[in-house]
Design a binder for these strands. Sequence first.
DNA 1: CTGAAAGCGCTAACAC
DNA 2: GTGTTAGCGCTTTCAG
Lengths: 335, 335
Amino acid sequence: MTTTIKDIARQIGISYSSVSRALNGKPGVGEKMRCRIVALADELGYQPNDLARGLVNKTSKTIGVIIPDINNPFFGEIVKGIIETANEEHYEVFLCISEWDSVKERDYINTLSKKRVDGIILKPAMDHKKNIYEHIRAPIMFIEQSWQDNQSEHTVEVDNVKGGYMAISHLIDCGYRNIGFLAGRKDSYSSALRMTGCESALQEKALLLNRDWIENSDFNIEGGYEATKRLLSRAKGIDAIFAFNDILALGAMQALKELGYEIPGDIGVMGYDNITYSGLPQIQLTTINQPKYELGRMISSTLLDIIKDREILEKKVVLSPTLISRATTCETIHR
Amino acid sequence: MTTTIKDIARQIGISYSSVSRALNGKPGVGEKMRCRIVALADELGYQPNDLARGLVNKTSKTIGVIIPDINNPFFGEIVKGIIETANEEHYEVFLCISEWDSVKERDYINTLSKKRVDGIILKPAMDHKKNIYEHIRAPIMFIEQSWQDNQSEHTVEVDNVKGGYMAISHLIDCGYRNIGFLAGRKDSYSSALRMTGCESALQEKALLLNRDWIENSDFNIEGGYEATKRLLSRAKGIDAIFAFNDILALGAMQALKELGYEIPGDIGVMGYDNITYSGLPQIQLTTINQPKYELGRMISSTLLDIIKDREILEKKVVLSPTLISRATTCETIHR
DNA sequence: CTGAAAGCGCTAACAC
DNA sequence: GTGTTAGCGCTTTCAG
């Protein structure tokens, strides 16, 4: 048996409410008594039962995090930020992996709410036109914007329109003109936002977005690989590929290599996210950096603000992406 | 207010114990009554409170996983296997990141046991000579062997001695003779085991292990980078580097490139783990594959076996590593 | 088949 | 300062 508050009360010969007070540092216990209690408590290795505590306090001190893919370093970094921040305020996190499956996601949400998590952080498996999560009792924060109008919500995100704009501007500056897109999942709202940014960069230079050169796929290396092959077989004359995340770009580079294209000479490649591996000397992928870890931290702390009903200074936090220019696009070689 | 078992009992005009029976599919409720209850329950969106359940059932249906580094894909894959397997049996997992810090690890263990997790999966932040985790009430499974004698434990691991042996045999076959080691953290027991395997491979060919060519560092890219620079400045005549994990090897390759060495011509490089990125066409790192996902799955299911007191067929499961020969070692160029 | 009641471990009034 | 008690939401005897 694990020792309870009652055990220690009995051994000392007092009521267990006093023990509770003493152990929680609440007033209403004599100083020497408190000492005796605390001493005995850790002599017995007493561990308060958080289930019981949660039951009465109506807070489990846990949050749930649902991401589609733990092996995309983008989410890995975010999760790290989330967990660290939550832990600092003594919250533990349930990690759930939806694998881009809305059914799994729904099941997770159910399970988490049975577990009485105090909040949820979610990257939806699929993006919809509007908020389909309003029925959920626990406060939710989203990883990446998931639909157009979220006036009422607190959000923290990285500016996707700007990121798309920066990427295309860079490609154009490098001399690339015929740009193909690896846009990932068809429903992705952040992809749509980036596309908007792309379009306005194109327009500035009086160029047009060729919607026929947009290829969709799963957000992973194989997806990027396959999509690139499809794209290249279809769209002759492409001189650059902008992938909407780095692992997609990694797949693209693999396909390009197989097909005998030189990067960045024949075709320039840009990624998005700036995962660690993109910076390796053998890869040197030009990309748009997202502050992943900080994003995780901010999402987590904002969720905790909501949970603890703290005043929130900014309703909408927008972080900035930055251009990381490396070897897969090159101003000198091209043009 | 969230609806409880009492709410639905009151609305239907029966006792709440009947509701409990009905909702849990236990006998002792009339069929039609059960239907009414179930219908009302999901009409009201009833979600059983797992905290309360856990309190009486003395099981939280949760496990805790403590790993040192979520951004090493080795752990990422393992965690994925763990979570999936746990979820299949309706357990949720608390993910904890120790950052190789024993103090954080201890805190996590405490927190988890307050949360009344039913089991823990742990990769120790630091390896010791013996089991320092015996005081913990919850059943524990370890990721990687952590000390010599664990007779009494259930274990599932990948054969490290064999892996070390395979790696060195391969390097020797390629013609490399003067091998330096990136052994990671000094305390690492799995590194020690691999070293044992290395030694016996060396001995078979009447070669000696040069302990002076073993360099320690943190298990990350920077660690590998720095360790390689130290090693090369100290140990002239090295013609191969065996890194005890892939990200260490990635760091090594970076350092090697900077210093102007050709791989695999001047120096061969081997990793360990076979993370996804090692297989990219630009990297092509020769490595020892570990079945990471399967390892995660098996560790998780064994833990659940223990928790649920199921019969365990094999006390010790040993999985096999395999050699993945790629471009950073080469039989033809060298020798 | 159904209801009443005890109790899981704890917190928080409320008395004294 | 300390004890008594109710109750958080649920499961599980034990009566009826």
